[in-house]
Amino acid sequence: MKKGYKGYRSYQYLEKDLDYKGFKLSKEIGRVEPYLIPLMDEEEKRVEVIINNNIVISLHDHPTIIPEDVNELMSYEREGREATAFEGLAHSCLDAVFDNMMDGTCVIGSKAGWKWIDVIHDMGMRSCDIAHQDFLIKGSNIDDIYKAKAEGKIAWFISLESATMIENELDRIEILYGLGARMMGIAYSESNSLGSGLKEKNDGGLTAFGCQAVERMNKVGMAIDVSHTGDKTAMDTIKASSKPIFISHIGARALWDMKRLKPDDVFKACADKGGVIGIEAAPHTTITRKHPRHDIDSYMEHFEYIKDLVGIDHVAFGPDALFGDHVSLHDLFSSNMSIAENTAGRSFDRIEYVKGLENPAEASQNIVRWLVKHGYSDEEIGKVLGKNVIRVLKQAWS
C-alpha cells in the first residue's frame, strides 16, 4: 500500500442512494485470481529498489471501477459518475497516471458519445471527487509528479482519447486545458473534423482544421496522442506537430495484423520526432503469433519488438486497464469502440481477463517484475518506467 492513501472512497462526501444513484461495484483487488510474476529473492529486492528510486508513469489507463453486474454498465455510464479506484491504485507502484476518463463510453446524453457537454460533465464530476481527498494529486505539471512520488501519492492527469467534442472550435482546446486536460488524441475510431479514425476504410489524413488544432495544442502546451487515428492521419500529425507526440497505448501490427495496432513506419516517424510509444494491454489487442493468448508475455513481446525497432529511449507503458470486467465492457460498447472492425478476420484465444495485467495495479507491478526477470539494466528500466515520458512532457508542455 502506498503510504499516502488514507482510505477515501469515491463520493463519500455524499450519501449513496440519496444524493446519487449507487451501484454495486467490482472488487478493486481480487476480482480474479491475482498474478505476480514469480521472482528469486535477489530479484524481489531489486524490484523494491527500482520502484523506490524511479518515477513510474502509466501513459494511459482508466483507473475507475465499473459495476460488478455488467448488465448495469450502460445505466452506470449514463449516470455520469464513475468511481475512481483509490484503494486499487494504492496497491500499484504508480507515481503518475494519465486517466482517459469516459472516453469511448461517454454516453451520458447520447448513445454515440463524445458530446461537448458530456465530456465537460465527466471532467468536472471526477475532478470534484479528486478535490475531496488527498491521495491523488490533480496534476498540471511535471513538478506534481515529483511531489506525488515524495509523498507516497499519485499524480492524476486528465487525458482525452479524441478531440471529437471540440467540433470546429479551436478555443475549446484552451477550455479543456483550463479544466485540467493535459493530453488529447486527434481522433478515436470514427473520423471527426480533425482527421480519420482507425475504423475508416479510407484514411483522408489530417484535415486543414486538424492542422490548426495541432498548432493550437502545441501553443497551449497540451500533449498530442494518435493511438486511435488512421495511419495516414497519425503520420500527418507527427509531421505537423512542432513538438514530439505520444502514441500512448498501442501494439505492433507486424506481430498481430489488426487495425487497432500500428505499422512500423508510424513508430519510426514518432521516434524520429522524439516521441514515445506506450504499449497497450486492453483485452485481445497485444496478441502475437507466438502468444495467441493475451497475457503479460504477449504484451511484453510487443514492447520488445517496438523497443528493438525504435530504441529504448522511445518506449513506455500505457496498459489501458481498469478495475472490473474489461472484456464484458468491450462486448457492451463494441460499436462505440469499433471492436468488430478492429478484430475482423483475426483468430485468437478469447480470454476472460488479461493475466498479469488485470488492472492498473497488477499491470504496474508485473511490468517492473518482467523487466527485472529478463535482465534489463537499472538505466533501461528507469527510462521505460518514466524518464522517457517526462522527457517528452517537458517539451510538449512547454
Rank of each mutant, 00 (worst) to 15 (best):
M1T: 07
Y5K: 01
G7P: 02
Y8Q: 04
R9C: 03
E15M: 06
E15G: 00
F23G: 04
L25P: 00
K27S: 07
G30C: 07
G30P: 08
R31T: 00
P38W: 10
E42P: 02
I50L: 15
I51T: 14
N52A: 15
I55Q: 13
L59D: 08
H60R: 12
I66R: 13
P67W: 12
D69V: 12
L73D: 14
M74F: 15
E77D: 10
A83T: 14
F86D: 06
A90P: 07
L94Q: 04
F98T: 05
N100K: 06
G104L: 02
C106Q: 12
G109K: 07
G109C: 02
G113V: 07
I117Y: 05
I117L: 03
V119N: 01
H121D: 02
R126P: 02
S127L: 08
I130E: 01
Q133W: 03
Q133I: 03
K138R: 11
I142E: 00
A148I: 01
K149M: 05
K153F: 04
I158V: 08
S159V: 01
L160D: 10
S162L: 07
T164G: 02
T164L: 09
E169R: 15
L179V: 15
G180C: 14
G180L: 13
R182K: 15
R182N: 14
G185E: 09
S189E: 11
L194P: 07
G195M: 00
S196M: 05
L198T: 06
L198E: 00
G205K: 02
F209Q: 02
C211Q: 15
A213P: 06
M217E: 02
M217L: 06
G221R: 13
A223Q: 06
I224W: 10
D225P: 05
S227N: 02
H228V: 03
T229N: 06
M235H: 07
I245M: 12
G251T: 02
L255V: 01
W256M: 09
W256P: 01
D257K: 14
K262Q: 04
P263A: 10
D264A: 12
K268P: 02
C270S: 08
C270R: 05
V276P: 01
G278F: 04
R289F: 03
K290F: 00
P292K: 03
R293C: 09
D297A: 04
D297N: 14
Y299E: 03
E301F: 00
E304Y: 10
Y305V: 00
G311L: 08
D313E: 14
H314A: 08
F317L: 11
P319C: 12
D320Y: 04
A321Y: 03
D325S: 12
D325P: 10
L329N: 07
H330F: 14
S335H: 07
S335P: 01
M337L: 15
M337Y: 09
A340L: 06
N342A: 10
K355H: 14
G356C: 11
L357E: 10
N359A: 09
A363W: 06
Q365S: 09
Q365Y: 10
V368R: 12
W370H: 13
K373L: 11
S377M: 04
E379M: 09
G382Y: 09
K387F: 10
I390Y: 11
V392K: 14
A396P: 11
S398Y: 15
S398K: 15
